[in-house]
Design a protein around this nucleic acid. Structure first.
Lengths: 220, 220, 220, 220
DNA sequence: GATGAATGAGGTTTCATTCAT
DNA sequence: TATGAATGAAACCTCATTCAT
C-alpha cells in the first residue's frame, strides 16, 4: 500500500529504534566533527538523521552525552582499525612501515576523527576523560611498538634508545597535522593538499621521515 | 607625562581609546584561542578587557571581524618570530636545527596560535582567506628553506630531492601536534606532556627526527 | 487463588488491569500532592506506578482527568473518615472535641489532601467544580454541626448565635494551616513542627481554641 | 514631541531601568502568586510588564532568582505592615484585637502573599531558606506577642500558660485559610466567601475566636 | 491490554547585536 | 568615547500526547 505512494521526502513512521539511533549517531558524528562541539547544532543533527529533534534527546539525553557517544564510537573505529594490524608477524622495518601507513589511512579514511579530537582538545579532553575504555585504548599498540623497536634494535636495523611514546606522537603528528590543518596550510602554502596525489605523496613522505629516524647509521 | 600637554580636546580619551582597543584585542586572543570561534563569548571578552561590551562593537564591528583582527595579530607574531632567524648566515645543519627549535618555541611560547589555527581549520580557513598579508606570509621562509636545502645538498650534508613544502609541514607537524593534542594524548598515553622537562625532551626529539630525515646516507 | 480459575480469555490481564489502575492512581496522588498539578510529571507517575506511560493515558485520558480522579478519591477519603464519626450519640462538648480531633487526624494522616487542595485552590477549584459528588460532600457534616450546636445551646453549654459554616472553617483552618504551611512556619518560627510531640501539642491546642470559643460564659 | 503621537500600544524605548525592573517584579508577583512557581510563565511576566522577555533574564538572572526576589519583596510588605502596629502602647485586649485585625487585613489586602506562600510550601520552603532576612522577620513580632500575653496575664485579663508560637499560628491560620482555600470552600459550602460582607463577618469571627481563647474564665 | 516509537508545542535560557544618549 | 537599555533569533531541552503494533 505504501508502495503506491511515490515515496515522500522520507517515508518515516514505521521505523525501528536501532536504525533511528544509528542514524542520529552518524549525523552527530558528521556535525560534531565538522563544526566542533560548540558549533554543532542538535537541530541540524536531527534534520540530517531525518528524525524529530526530540528523538535525539530521547535516545541520548543531551548534547554532551551525544558527543561522548560519538567520541566512543570514534575510538572504537580506531581500535578496530589497529586490531587488524599484525605487526608482530612482520619484520621490524615492514612493521613500522605498515604502522605509519595504517595511521595515515586511519585519519584519511575517517576524517571525522580529526574534527572530534580537535574539538576535544579545545575542551581539555573533559569528555573522554570519563571513559576508561578510551583511557586504555592505546596500551596494546604502544606495547607492540616497544616490541618492534626491540626486535629492530636486536637485528641491528634500528638505532637504540628510541622512546616508543615519542615515536608514537611523531607518527601521529606527521599524519594528523597534514589533514587537520589542510585548510590553513593550503592557503599559506598555495598548494592543494586535498588531492589524491598530494595525499599519496604525503604518505610516502611520512614513511620516509619515520623510517629515516629509526634506521641505524654509523655516524648518528 | 600627560600633564605636560594642555589636555587637548580628545587627548586623554584617545589614549584610553588605544589602550581599550589593545585590551580588547588581547582579551579576544585569549578567549578565541581557548574556546574557539563558536565557543567564544563576546561578553567574556569585554569583561576580561574591562570595557563595556558595546566598545567591542564600536571598535571591531562584530564577532567575526574581531576574530579576523586576532588572526592577523597572530600571523604578525609568527612573522616577527621568524624575521629574527638569520638562517642564511648559518651552515645548513645549524640552520635547520635552528629552524626546528624556533618553530617549536613559536608554538610553545605563543600557545594561543594553536587554538586559533585549530578553530580556523574547523571553519575551512574562511576568515584568513580574506587577508593577502597572511596569504604570502610564509613565502620568504619557504624560499629560505629551499636555499638551505640546496646549500646542504651541495655540501653533501643533506640528501637530494627533498620537497621544501613537505619538510615545512613535517617540522610544523612535529611541533604543533604535540601541543595542540596534549590533552587527549596525555590522557591516552598516561603521561604528562605539559611539564618543562617533557617539552625540552620533545624539542630535542623533533630536531632529531627532522635532521635524521635530512641527512645524506649511503644506503637510502 | 487465581489458579483455581481456568484462566479465561482475559482473567489475568483484567486483574493486572485493576492493579495497574490502582497503582497509577496511587502514584498520581503522591505526585500531584507533593508537586501540585503544574509541577507534577506524568512520566514520574508512570515510573512510580511501574507501568508504561501510555497506560496512564489509556486508563485516564489525560493529565487533567487523572488529577480529577485523584481529587475524587481524596474526597472519598474525607467522607469515609467523617462517616465513622457518630457525633449525634455524644454529648455536645464531646462531640465537638471529637470533631476537632478527627479533623486534625484527617489531615495529619492523609497529608496528600493538603497538597491537592492547595493546588486546586491555585487553579480556582476548576477541577472539582465538575463533580457534584464533591459539591455535596460536606452537607451532612454541616447539618450535624448545626444540630450539635443547637443541642449545646439548649443545654447551656455553648453560647448562642454561632454560625456553623464559620465554625467549620475555623476548625479546618486551625488544623490545615499548621500542616499546609509547616515548611515556611518552621523556618520563620525556628521550630520543628513536624515532630510527633509538636503535632500532639498542636492538636490539644486546637481543641482548646475551638472549645473556648464555643463555651458559654457570663460576660461574652 | 512624543505628545504629538497618539501613544501607541505602549510607548517604550525611552525607558528607565528602575521602572522596568519594578514592572517586571510586579508582574512576576502577580504571575507567581496566581499560578505558583511551576505554573508561572516567564513569557507572561515579560508580556505583562511590557518588556522583552530577555530583560527579565538580564535583570534577574533566571526564573528561580526572580521568584526569590518576589518572595523577599513579599516579606518586606509583611514587615512594613507589622511595623506600624504599636501594640505595646495599647492595653492587652486592644493590642490582641488589633493584631488579629491587622493580620487579616495583611492577607486580604495583599492576596499575592497567599499564593506565594502556598507555592513555597509545596517546594519545602527551599527558596526562602536562602534568606536570613526572612528567617528573622517575625522575631520582633513574636516578642511583642509574648510581652502582651504577660501584660494581659498580670492584669488578670488573659489566662496563663499560653504559648506565643501556637497563638501566632492560630491567628494566621484563621485569617489565611479562609482566603487561601476560598475557592474549594466556597464550592463545598455553597457560599460566596469573596464578598466584602463575608470578609467583614469573617474578620469579626476571627477576633472573637482568638479573644475567647485568650480570656481568663473561672472554670477553664 | 500493553508497549516502544515518535512528535508538536512551548518552556527557559543564551547570545550577538542595536538603540539612544 | 563610552554606556545602560533593550531586542530578535535561536539554542537546548521538557513534556504531554499520539501512532502503530
Amino acid at each position: 500500500m505504501s508502495n503506491t505512494k511515490p515515496a515522500g521526502p522520507k517515508t518515516r513512521k514505521t521505523r525501528n529504534s536501532e536504525l533511528s539511533k544509528a542514524e542520529i549517531l552518524h549525523a552527530a558524528q558528521v556535525e560534531f566533527s565538522s563544526c566542533g562541539f560548540d558549533g554543532a547544532r542538535v537541530s541540524r543533527i536531527a534534520q540530517a538523521a531525518g528524525v524529530n529533534i526530540n528523538l535525539v534527546y530521547h535516545y541520548f539525553g543531551n548534547k554532551e552525552a551525544l558527543f561522548i557517544a560519538v567520541m566512543e564510537a570514534a575510538y572504537i573505529t580506531i581500535r578496530t582499525h589497529h586490531k587488524y594490524l599484525e605487526l608482530l608477524r612482520l619484520d621490524p622495518v615492514d612493521a613500522m612501515t605498515e604502522l605509519v601507513r595504517a595511521t595515515f589511512d586511519l585519519f584519511a579514511d575517517n576524517p571525522h576523527i580529526i574534527g572530534l579530537l580537535s574539538s576535544e582538545n579545545m575542551h581539555g579532553a573533559k569528555h573522554i576523560r570519563q571513559s576508561d575504555q578510551i583511557r586504555n585504548l592505546y596500551n596494546p599498540l604502544l606495547e607492540t611498538i616497544r616490541e618492534t623497536l626491540d626486535r629492530g634494535e636486536s637485528k641491528g636495523l634500528f638505532r637504540s634508545g628510541i622512546d616508543a611514546v615519542e615515536l608514537f606522537i611523531s607518527i601521529n603528528a606527521e599524519c594528523y597535522f597534514y589533514l587537520s590543518n589542510q585548510h590553513t596550510l593550503g592557503f599559506i602554502l598555495h598548494r592543494d593538499l586535498t588531492s589524491a596525489e598530494s595525499r599519496a605523496r604525503r604518505k610516502d613522505h611520512v614513511v620516509d621521515v619515520i623510517l629515516s629516524f629509526l634506521r641505524a647509521h654509523g655516524n648518528s
